[in-house]
Computed example of a mutant assay.
Amino acid sequence: MQVEEHAAWGRDFPVKYLLVREDEEGEERFWGRCAGVEGLFVDRVPPPREVLTLRGCTPDGVLGNALAHAGKATGLLGDVCVEVWDEQQPVQWWNLVDTVVIAHQPSRTDPALVDVVVGAGVEEEYTWSRALPTSPRFELFAGTTVAAVPAGRCLSIDGLFVSREAAPRTPLELIGCEAGEPLLAVLRRPRKWERDWMQVWALDRNGRVMY
């Protein structure tokens, strides 16, 4: 598909977005163009808060700092990534959003380890199988994906493997949309469409795709 063929139209306002979808052969096809998209740049709805217990922790980094001062203010950890490892590599991962340490105490099974109760919103990027490796290892990382640092490890996490409702999706409204023939065909018989994904390409003032 040639972007320049669809990046301009005979109207007083510019084309700002193209609607594109791959066909069965992997070719990108033009599905429409529009002047605006409402709901594209809104903040995600934060996940509901939950209470989890990190069992048998060996804390490090920000988690170790949060546990170092007993009786002090609640430890704020920010976002924490939990990776479930088998003997060689991570096989599952979860995001604990805005994690806060609520309480901690020595582990009953091993006083050298710590049980940590935290409050967080849980984001599950994929719907993981509840089956775990024979000897799972839970690695903790604090910070964003780009700048995550180790925060320790633990033996298990109570409250992590539960069923959750899917996060609500933000609907998009296409403003000033001129639909291509494939999209018009879907609009004529929407129940016949498999409702697969579609891409929204943003254009700059010169009609070039912004990556």
Rank of each mutant, 00 (worst) to 15 (best):
L18T: 13
P136Y: 02
P168Q: 03
T109C: 00
K72S: 15
H6A: 06
Q2L: 00
A8T: 12
G75C: 04
A35W: 06
E50S: 12
V37F: 09
A103K: 15
W85V: 04
L19F: 03
G152R: 02
G180I: 08
D158Y: 06
A70K: 13
E125Y: 07
I175C: 07
E24N: 15
W197A: 13
Q2S: 05
G71K: 01
G159C: 08
G152C: 03
V82R: 03
V186Y: 02
A142P: 08
A147N: 14
R191S: 12
M1P: 11
Q88S: 08
L140A: 05
D115L: 00
P47C: 10
V116H: 10
A35F: 05
F41R: 15
E123G: 05
E28N: 12
D204T: 14
E25Q: 10
P133H: 02
L155Y: 00
T134S: 14
F138T: 10
F41A: 07
E123F: 01
V91G: 10
G26H: 01
L183F: 05
E28S: 13
L183S: 13
E50T: 13
C57K: 05
L77D: 03
G75A: 06
A167C: 09
F30D: 15
D60M: 02
A70L: 07
W85E: 04
V116K: 06
N206E: 15
V101E: 00
A103F: 07
R33V: 00
E25F: 01
R130T: 14
T74C: 05
D79R: 12
A202N: 05
L172D: 06
R11T: 12
F41L: 14
L96R: 08
G36F: 00
T53K: 06
A35P: 01
P59N: 04
A131Y: 08
R49Q: 11
P90L: 11
Q2T: 01
E5F: 03
R44H: 08
N206L: 09
R11M: 02
E178D: 12
P111L: 12
A179I: 07
A35R: 14
W197E: 09
P133N: 03
E50A: 11
W201P: 04
F141Y: 15
G36R: 07
D196P: 01
V42N: 06
V80S: 05
G119W: 00
V100F: 00
N65R: 12
W128R: 03
R44V: 05
C154V: 03
Q89R: 14
E124R: 14
G78E: 05
E25M: 09
P46A: 03
H6I: 01
D204C: 07
C57G: 09
R191P: 01
L160Y: 01
G176H: 07
E178V: 09
V100D: 04
V114I: 09
R208N: 10
G56M: 06
K192Y: 09
V149R: 14
T53E: 02
A103R: 14
